[in-house]
């Protein structure tokens, strides 16, 4: 399965003030595949995910050392345009967070930001994004309705559609199914499966079965360090580190 690496993380350290949340993280994330981050709570999964689209920039006191290269460009270099980076590296959050606007305006928000104003063009993007997020059939008749009137699972798929609408290449999902019921969860997992042909997906999950079911590569974190990462089947069937084995067999965490 060894696809080309799209993202290369090299000896990454991240500090929140004096606290070091990531320690010497080195990692390759393959293109057009699903990479899962697993590990106990507080081990730095979300932190690493947020470094990939530089959402950590806004946390006061957060400081990064080392490098992250996407397609050969160091995203922490001075000449990187952060807004373009975030457009290319989309993010779906743990809690569904649609804007208090209509369904249509939620999806159209991103494209409008980036300068698309023609109604016809927007309509097309909205429809395509909602289709890609497997939500179109449920909402196509009331696009003007408030996004907050949707169910939690629908809201999360709307957030995925919203992220897809700006045309990203990478999709970061931080425990995107943890607030959802099993059926919505399965829907989003299936969605991820479909999307992986077009997007590079990185997902954080607490659900080991989910990681095993959907991902190609799994990374196991402990206390801010990468303990082990490899193809998902190998990591779950034949982990090379004792701590990984303890974790996946439920002996701690």
């Amino acid at each position: 399965m060894q696809a080309t690496a799209l993202i290369e993380i090299n000896k990454l350290n991240l500090f929140y003030g004096a606290f070091q949340a990531l320690k010497h993280v080195s990692l390759e994330i393959p293109q057009r595949a699903i990479t899962a981050f697993i590990g106990p709570s507080g081990c730095g999964k979300s932190t690493l995910l947020r470094t990939l689209n530089r959402m950590n920039d806004m946390i006061p006191g957060a400081r990064v050392e080392g490098s992250i290269e996407i397609g050969g460009t160091d995203i922490y270099a001075g000449d990187v345009h952060v807004e373009t980076l975030r457009k290319k590296v989309g993010m779906v959050f743990q809690q569904p967070n649609p804007f208090p606007k209509s369904i249509y305006d939620n999806v159209a928000y991103g494209p409008r930001l980036h300068g698309i104003t023609k109604k016809r063009e927007l309509d097309e993007i909205v429809e395509n994004s909602l289709r890609s997020a497997a939500l179109w059939n449920e909402v196509k008749d009331h696009l003007k309705r408030s996004a907050l009137s949707l169910s939690g699972g629908q809201q999360q798929r709307l957030c995925i559609a919203r992220a897809l609408a700006v045309g990203p290449d990478v999709l970061l999902m931080d425990e995107a199914t943890s607030a959802l019921d099993p059926i919505s969860t399965i829907k989003i997992e299936e969605l991820a499966q479909e999307l992986k042909d077009r997007y590079t997906i990185v997902m954080v999950t607490h659900n080991m079965h989910q990681a095993a079911r959907v991902s190609h590569q799994t990374v196991f974190f402990l206390n801010g360090e990468v303990v082990e990462y490899s193809a998902t089947e190998k990591l779950f069937s034949d982990p090379s580190d004792q701590r990984t084995e303890d974790y996946i067999s439920g002996r701690f965490g």
Binding site: R86, F93, N97, P98, F99
Partner: peptide
């Protein structure tokens, strides 16, 4: 206005100005 709206807006690649006028003030 909840932080999650701002996060969502920034994550789509908006500037601070766009976030304030596009999301925060309407909310």
């Amino acid at each position: 206005v909840p932080k999650k709206y701002r996060d969502a807006s920034y994550a789509l690649g908006s500037t601070r100005f766009q976030t304030i006028f596009g999301v925060v003030l309407p909310a």
